[in-house]
Simulated scan of single mutants.
Amino acid sequence: MGLSITIGAVYSLCALVAMCAGFPAGGNGALQPNFYGATCPQAETIVRQEVIRWLHSDMGFAAGLVRMHFHDCFVRGCDASILLESTPDNTAERDSPVNNPSLRGFEVIDSAKARLEDACPGVVSCADILAFAARDSVALSGGPRYDVPGGRRDGTLSMASEVADNIPAPTFNLDQLTQSFAAKGLTQEEMVTLSGAHTIGRAHCTAFSDRLYNFSATGVADPTLDPPFLAQLQHACPAAGDGGVDPGLVVPMEPRTPHALDTLYYWGVLRNRGLFASDQALLASAPTAAQVRQSAYGGYPWKLKFAAAMVKMGQIQVLTGGGGQIRAKCSAVN
Score class of each variant (00 low, 15 high):
residue 8 G to Y: 08
residue 10 V to L: 09
residue 12 S to F: 12
residue 14 C to N: 15
residue 16 L to G: 08
residue 16 L to N: 14
residue 17 V to E: 05
residue 25 A to K: 14
residue 26 G to I: 06
residue 29 G to R: 06
residue 30 A to D: 15
residue 35 F to E: 08
residue 37 G to Y: 01
residue 44 E to P: 07
residue 48 R to F: 05
residue 50 E to N: 07
residue 50 E to F: 01
residue 54 W to L: 05
residue 56 H to D: 13
residue 62 A to H: 02
residue 64 G to S: 06
residue 70 F to R: 02
residue 71 H to G: 02
residue 75 V to F: 00
residue 78 C to D: 04
residue 80 A to P: 05
residue 81 S to W: 02
residue 83 L to K: 03
residue 84 L to E: 01
residue 84 L to R: 09
residue 101 P to W: 10
residue 102 S to Q: 13
residue 102 S to W: 05
residue 106 F to H: 08
residue 107 E to N: 13
residue 109 I to Y: 11
residue 120 C to D: 02
residue 125 S to G: 06
residue 126 C to M: 08
residue 129 I to A: 06
residue 130 L to F: 08
residue 131 A to T: 11
residue 131 A to D: 09
residue 132 F to H: 05
residue 132 F to V: 12
residue 133 A to T: 11
residue 140 L to A: 07
residue 141 S to V: 06
residue 142 G to Q: 05
residue 142 G to D: 02
residue 142 G to T: 02
residue 147 D to R: 07
residue 152 R to Y: 09
residue 153 R to G: 08
residue 158 S to I: 04
residue 159 M to R: 13
residue 161 S to W: 02
residue 161 S to P: 00
residue 162 E to Y: 10
residue 169 A to N: 14
residue 169 A to R: 08
residue 170 P to K: 02
residue 176 Q to H: 05
residue 179 Q to R: 11
residue 180 S to A: 15
residue 184 K to F: 05
residue 187 T to G: 06
residue 191 M to K: 04
residue 193 T to D: 11
residue 197 A to C: 11
residue 201 G to I: 02
residue 202 R to A: 14
residue 205 C to N: 01
residue 206 T to W: 11
residue 207 A to E: 15
residue 207 A to V: 04
residue 208 F to L: 04
residue 213 Y to S: 05
residue 213 Y to V: 12
residue 220 V to I: 11
residue 220 V to S: 13
residue 223 P to D: 08
residue 229 F to G: 01
residue 230 L to D: 07
residue 230 L to G: 03
residue 232 Q to F: 00
residue 238 P to W: 10
residue 241 G to A: 15
residue 243 G to R: 07
residue 247 P to C: 12
residue 252 P to T: 00
residue 253 M to F: 00
residue 256 R to F: 00
residue 258 P to V: 00
residue 260 A to G: 01
residue 263 T to V: 12
residue 266 Y to A: 06
residue 267 W to Y: 11
residue 268 G to D: 13
residue 272 N to K: 05
residue 275 L to T: 00
residue 278 S to C: 08
residue 281 A to C: 14
residue 288 T to M: 14
residue 290 A to V: 04
residue 291 Q to W: 01
residue 295 S to E: 07
residue 295 S to P: 01
residue 297 Y to I: 14
residue 308 A to K: 03
residue 309 A to S: 15
residue 309 A to N: 14
residue 313 M to Q: 14
residue 313 M to L: 15
residue 318 V to K: 08
residue 318 V to Q: 07
residue 318 V to W: 04
residue 322 G to E: 13
residue 324 G to V: 03
residue 329 K to D: 12
residue 333 V to L: 11
residue 333 V to Y: 00
